[in-house]
Design a protein around this nucleic acid. Structure first.
Lengths: 143, 143
DNA sequence: TTAGATGCAAAGGGTTTGCAACGTC
DNA sequence: GACGTTGCAAACCCTTTGCATCTAA
């Protein structure tokens, strides 16, 4: 937790945003999981550290951290927002059964942006790619 | 409107769902635009044809039509749902300035699903690809 | 010292839902 | 005639916000 703490302090200073206990706890919790959790899940986890924190504070900080590109917000069909402590663009797989979100270990295809850009005339900043299907866990489940 | 009407009747029959005036109008309106509109936009348009229709009916029907794969729902960051009368998988470009959604004329890369599937072990049904940037209209705007 | 952050609770806003009346097949 | 659908309005639920208090720098 010490290493993470230092890393977070550095992140906050580099973005010129004030480091509060709440903010550090929120980003710490998010960075300690690969579950791509919801605001409410993060709230419950942070409450184990700061029992008096409010859900409003969690939302406010998630938005601030997003604006400073210290995390990403993920929106999927029919779902509430999920948050990703990895702010770098990367691809995801969403299980259509259990709704879990997995990271895909595949480099982002920057060539694609250039190709589509010159083909269509749109000035492309980035793209977002998600795969949908059934994860190994759910595939083995009986009906 | 006659051709579209027949097409819609066929679509409804083929899916075994009852065809009501409201339902036909909703899908008709959606199929007559490439704006990828919101439920509220569709509601306002349908009201020009059926002034007494309620927003609840629009939502209910959009969900039913989505379940029967007669349209697609699109969710983007920080945004309300948009609906696409083209139920076939295809790619989109979203302008980060005006938020408009454009279709991308590019074949869906099915090889990609196979490649990622064998690489990761996930059973992939489909993928969703969106490009973000600035559209030609907004690029030319003064600041 | 002071601008920015917090906790609380209320408000917002898109979407869903219960119910009696209605319309489609 | 039976059952799915509608219109209406209220409820839902995630998220945002106003405000007095607090706190990091």
């Amino acid at each position: 937790m010490d290493v993470i703490d230092k890393e977070l302090s550095r992140a906050f200073r580099s973005k010129n945003i004030r480091m509060t206990r709440q903010r550090r706890a929120i980003l710490g919790v998010l960075r300690s999981t690969d579950l791509h959790p919801t605001a409410d899940w993060i709230y419950e986890k942070v409450r184990e550290i700061l029992p008096n924190i409010s859900l409003g504070t969690v939302y406010r900080n998630l938005n601030i951290l997003k604006e400073h590109e210290l995390l990403r917000e993920l929106n999927y069909s029919d779902e509430v927002s999920h948050f990703d402590g990895n702010a770098e663009n990367h691809y995801h797989f969403i299980c259509q059964n259990c709704k879990r979100i997995f990271d895909i270990d595949e480099p982002v295809d920057i060539q694609l942006d250039r190709r589509i850009s010159s083909k269509t005339g749109f000035e492309i900043d980035h793209h977002r790619l998600e795969f949908y299907g059934i994860c190994p866990n759910c595939k083995d489940l009986p009906y």
